[in-house]
Simulated assay, not measured.
Amino acid sequence: MDVRRVARQLPLRLASGAFILNSGLSKRGADQEAAEQLHGFASTAYPVVGRHEPQRFVRMLSTAEIALGTVLLVPAVPGVVAGAGLTAFSAGLVGLYLRTPGMRQEGSLRPTEQGIALAKDSWLLGIGMSLIVDGLPECGRRSR
C-alpha cells in the first residue's frame, strides 16, 4: 500500500464517502410517500427504474449508496476501484440532472433554481475521475 497515495486521496474519499454513506442510511427507512417521490423522479430520467416497485427501488438505491460510501471510506480498497464505483454512480446522478426537465436553463447546462441540488453532484464525478487517474500506474516512468 502506497501510504503517500492513500494520504493524498484521503480528503477526497472522506468527503465523498461520508456524504454518500449518509445519503444511503437516510434512505434506509423511507416511507411509502418518500419512496414514490424518489422513484417517480428517477423513472422520469431513467424509464427502466419504472419496472421496480418504489420501495424496492429505494432499498436497492440505499444499499448501493451504503456500499459505495463504505468502499470510499476504507483505505484498503484501491483508489482506482473506489474511483470507478464513484464515477459510475455519479455519472448516473449527472445524467439525472441532464435528463430531467426543468433542471437546466433552456439551451444551457446552467442549472435552474430547482436544478442546483442535482448540478452539485458533478463534484462527485470529478472526485471519482481524480481517484481513477491517481490510481493508475505512471506510464513512461524513468528510473533514476
Rank of each mutant, 00 (worst) to 15 (best):
T44Q: 10
L38M: 11
K120D: 06
L96D: 01
E53I: 01
A42C: 02
A42Y: 03
L38Y: 08
D31Q: 06
V74G: 10
H52V: 07
R141F: 05
G140S: 04
L73M: 07
S130R: 08
L136W: 05
G128W: 04
P111M: 13
R5C: 05
A15C: 05
A34F: 12
R104C: 01
A76D: 03
G69T: 09
N22T: 15
H39Q: 06
S62K: 02
G126C: 03
Q37I: 12
I116H: 15
R28C: 10
Q114D: 11
R51V: 02
F89P: 00
D134M: 08
R104E: 00
R141D: 13
Y46M: 00
G40S: 00
I127F: 05
F19Y: 11
S43R: 15
S26G: 15
V6T: 11
G69L: 07
A45M: 09
L10W: 04
V3E: 14
V74N: 12
D121Y: 05
L38K: 08
N22D: 13
L125C: 00
L124N: 02
Q55H: 08
W123Q: 12
L14R: 03
V81D: 14
L14H: 05
A15T: 03
L14E: 02
H52A: 11
V94D: 02
A84P: 07
E65N: 07
H52L: 08
L118T: 08
I132R: 01
G140P: 06
V71Y: 03
A76V: 13
L25Y: 07
L61Y: 13
L109W: 14
R28N: 05
P78M: 08
D31N: 07
M103H: 15
A91T: 13
R59K: 13
V74R: 11
M60V: 06
S130N: 15
R13T: 03
A18V: 12
L68V: 08
A18C: 10
L68Q: 03
A84D: 09
T70G: 08
A34E: 04
Q37Y: 10
A7D: 14
T87F: 00
A91P: 09
D2Q: 10
G69W: 00
F89G: 02
W123K: 14
E113D: 13
G126N: 05
E36N: 06
S122Q: 06
R51I: 02
G40A: 00
Q105S: 05
R13W: 04
L21K: 12
P111K: 15
S90M: 12
A76S: 08
P54Y: 03
I116W: 15
L72M: 02
T112M: 00
N22L: 06
N22V: 11
R8W: 07
M129C: 14
V6Y: 12
H39K: 06
D134P: 05
K120N: 15
G17N: 13
G17I: 11
L131S: 06
Q32Y: 15
G85T: 11
W123N: 09
G29W: 08
A35H: 04
L72H: 01
E106H: 01
I66R: 04
L61H: 14
R59T: 03
Q32L: 05
A117Y: 02
R51P: 01
D2M: 10
P75M: 09
M129T: 07
T44M: 10
V58R: 02
G29S: 14
D134C: 06
D31P: 04
L12F: 11
R110F: 13
G83I: 03
M129A: 13
R56A: 09
V80W: 14
G95K: 01
A119T: 05
T44K: 07
V77D: 02
V133S: 11
L14F: 02
G135E: 09
